[in-house]
Design a protein around this nucleic acid. Structure first.
Lengths: 204, 204
DNA sequence: GTCTATACCACGATAGAC
DNA sequence: GTCTATCGTGGTATAGAC
């Protein structure tokens, strides 16, 4: 299927060179098709980007909600909530979706329509997880919870999108092992951060 | 000074639209000069980007090392180390460097020469801070320390580069207050994460 | 040092044959 | 559905007057 090949090539090239940094000519060459086929199947370059994003993110978000619903302890333990949030993304590194990962963080910074669309796809996930976190951390004020949820997302985004950062920080000594290992490290760190005692704020 | 005006305009536009997404024509128009002056003062578009990066990052890193050296308690407390790492960046939000912040994270994801250059500028800072963290957290294995330093950097990068993420997570309810407030929240969260107990890893 | 003018090329998009 | 051919725009970079 031509459409599928275009999606595959676009995913890889957008991840490598960014949206503006990738031309439709590169994409169609990599997909062994012609320039016009992109417009036939997707409309514009923008729409192609949204299709690439949607193809990976929708199944991930479904899995996240399934994992959240599958937690049987009530109120759900913090580590289970975080695992449900992290694991479906981290698992991509072991499968065919690995090409997508650098895009994951990039979209948040590149702005444009893809960022809006990203947030739109994330909305049901965000509200469900915020509710779960609220029940696991009832003592946290709403604003504090937002900040800490933000930090929690940061850890995922940076780790997935920027493996080169880790490679550099560690001087190459630190490599990505299995998805389980990474998820555990992220859950450990962010669970502790979410549970950190809140000091009084010094300034307004 | 034409050179200064170009740097100013380039910083803002790169931050808004990315490197590939910004044209020299946009930059020279915003700087009220002509297309050729960029090549006269900086050489290529690439070199201009490096100049923009260097102008902000070098003073920040100097201040970081000064703050680290100024800690008088030994071994240095974790919160003081983290404050020295975070504060010089966060303080930009209150000054003229605020335009630069979105670039900060973007560079890590956009790749290219600017990322290499970024790491090069960060190298002395990274080794000094890793040493300080090692002395504050002597029980952590080297690999664990690298991961957690990575998460610590993630929190800074995401918060600085992606204020829209926080705005969205909170539905606009959560706004950026002063630099002190933000730094404290980041220090609290990451200090707890760095101190989290290490469980045995399940997989290799 | 700073400008105008322009060379030259790659871009996204489209029309129309097959 | 897929192709070739082409349009118009805007990209980086440069030559040469002032």
């Amino acid at each position: 299927m031509t459409k599928e090949r275009i999606l595959e090539a676009a995913e890889r090239l957008f991840a490598e060179n960014g949206f503006e940094g990738t031309s439709l000519r590169q994409i169609t060459a990599a997909a062994s098709t012609n320039l016009a086929s992109v417009h036939y199947h997707f409309g514009t370059k923008d729409d192609l980007m949204l299709a690439v994003l949607n193809r990976r993110l929708t199944p991930i978000n479904q899995k996240r909600l399934e994992m959240l619903d599958a937690i049987e302890v009530h109120p759900p333990p913090l580590s289970a909530i975080l695992t449900a949030f992290y694991a479906p993304v981290v698992e991509l590194i072991e499968g065919p979706g690995a090409e997508f990962l650098p895009l994951f963080g990039r979209i948040l910074f590149e702005g444009g329509r893809s960022r809006e669309f990203f947030f739109q796809l994330m909305q049901p996930v965000a509200s469900r997880f915020l509710a779960a976190l609220r029940s696991a951390l009832p003592h946290l004020q709403e604003e504090e919870l937002f900040w800490r949820m933000h930090f929690t997302a940061a850890i995922l985004g940076f780790t997935m999108a920027g493996s080169h950062v880790l490679a550099w920080v560690s001087g190459g000594k630190c490599q990505l092992r299995g998805a389980r290992d990474i998820t555990e490290r992220m859950v450990e760190f962010s669970a502790a951060g979410l549970r950190a005692p809140v000091h009084q704020r010094s300034s307004l």
